[in-house]
Design a protein around this nucleic acid. Structure first.
Lengths: 255, 255
DNA sequence: GGACAAATATTGTCAGACAAGTAAATCGCA
DNA sequence: TGCGATTTACTTGTCTGACAATATTTGTCC
């Protein structure tokens, strides 16, 4: 996001993310009980007010439920706001399950072709300009670097935006997260992922030409290819715990 | 929900809903500034902590953004978590704009036919049982009473659930809200809305027969009819000031 | 052994204080 | 007088300590 300025992140955000990540990555399963507010406060080195505000935020996203004397418990997954940007970000803090990635692609396959068709009818010059700019950036950089990946995401977001439908545009956070993460997979596995620039261009042209059916078909082709590539990447990515998440200059702790 | 017991609703929920409704119904437009925390606390008769927790919840849903010295401001609509159950409920506290209702139907038209097709492949006996039970209830009661409406919503939720896709199932809150409120519109306008039971049954049978294309088509028909009915209801619904709603809730409740 | 009542632990709410951050007003200097 | 640097003031951010509400658990009495 662009609001990653140098503003110090408030403590309640940090706490809510820490708890949120712990929950969505399975540290606390649904039904499990979180530590008491005093305990969390002590562990995190903040006051109880901060913890409470953080827990309120998690409750607003449907992650937890608090009741006096009972404590705060993790709710069933179906109550989670899975499409919330924060939640998706937290999901990808650890490697999400294969099923989750598949679900994400299925969602894209439902939403994006339809959105592309709508966008072909509703797009304005501004939308085309945004998409064209993103395409240029994608060509200039590649998917291997962050700038190119961002451009890719902007392209997809612009399509959803061009539908003129607030609710569909709201799914862009989820779609972009899917694009982002699966690209990440592919780059890690193949180093140089298959170039999908032409497929993007075809989609762009169909939208520019106001050709709805062609736009839908182009989106289907694009997503299907991306899905296959990701499938291959996932299949060949062995569950190898030895090489999990090597960070630069990581220090290892022997326990 | 079944957790609507007689538990007293916490104050922070009341405050967050009051503020949330005021925001999503246009009482505070994006960019506008909310009153200070002390001021809100005084107006609502609660302490500042409660107000802060409420504002944190709104921030978690993307509605507002707070910064020291600046205050708390309403964010652009595209940042709102439009598909959040609370947000949708708040939206319908006052009559939503015609465009919003249209967007909601467009979203249904994108999601539900695809979901129906997926459900035809993935549904289990449990899902069919749930759908069948809901259909029975719809027939027993009608759409004119709450029980029948709830059954209608459960039917649609069961379809999304039957896709086996967590993310798509997550849209059920939004879809059900659309079903709920548009039904509300129709009942208020016509008293006795057109019976759509047969269309529901057709959809159910297609899913039970594992006939994907038929399920998709049945869903399209169902939604298209609902859309047309709602369109008519909206067109003939003149803005009646009789049922005007008080904007920001309440200085105080008698206890 | 079972029904009722008290103890208890946890969240919910309140009040007051100080810290941090930032826009606006003020001061100082050329 | 004009403009930059400084101070001020106001709002959110955080901390502390206390008490209330609530529901589980335990204890008591019949």
């Amino acid at each position: 996001m662009q609001d990653a300025q140098k503003r110090r992140e408030p403590a309640n955000y940090k706490v809510s993310r820490a708890l949120g990540v712990a929950i969505v990555t399975g540290g606390y399963v649904p039904g499990a009980q979180l530590p008491g507010e005093f305990e969390i406060a002590e562990q995190m080195g903040v006051s109880r007010s901060v913890v409470r505000e953080a827990v309120r935020m998690l409750a607003a996203k449907g992650l937890v439920e608090s009741r006096p004397k009972i404590g705060t418990r993790v709710r069933e997954r179906r109550h989670w706001s899975m499409l919330d940007p924060d939640l998706l970000e937290w999901m990808f803090e650890s490697e999400p399950s294969e099923k989750f990635v598949r679900d994400l692609f299925a969602l894209r396959m439902v939403v994006e072709p339809a959105a592309a068709e709508m966008a072909a009818q509703m797009r304005t010059a501004r939308h085309l300009s945004e998409m064209g700019y993103a395409l240029e950036k994608m060509a200039e950089f590649t998917l291997r670097v962050a700038e190119g990946q961002q451009a890719d995401e902007r392209f997809h977001a612009a399509i959803l935006d061009a539908t003129g439908n607030e609710l569909i545009a709201n799914l862009s956070a989820s779609i972009c997260a899917a694009v982002h993460w699966t690209t990440h997979f592919k780059v890690r596995r193949f180093g140089n992922p298959r170039d999908s620039l032409e497929e993007h261009r075809a989609l762009f042209e169909a939208i520019a030409n106001a050709d709805g059916p062609a736009a839908r078909e182009a989106a289907v082709v694009l997503i299907e290819h991306a899905r296959r590539d990701t499938e291959v990447a996932l299949a060949t990515l062995q569950p190898d715990p030895s090489e999990k998440r090597v960070i630069v200059g990581a220090k290892k702790y022997e326990e």
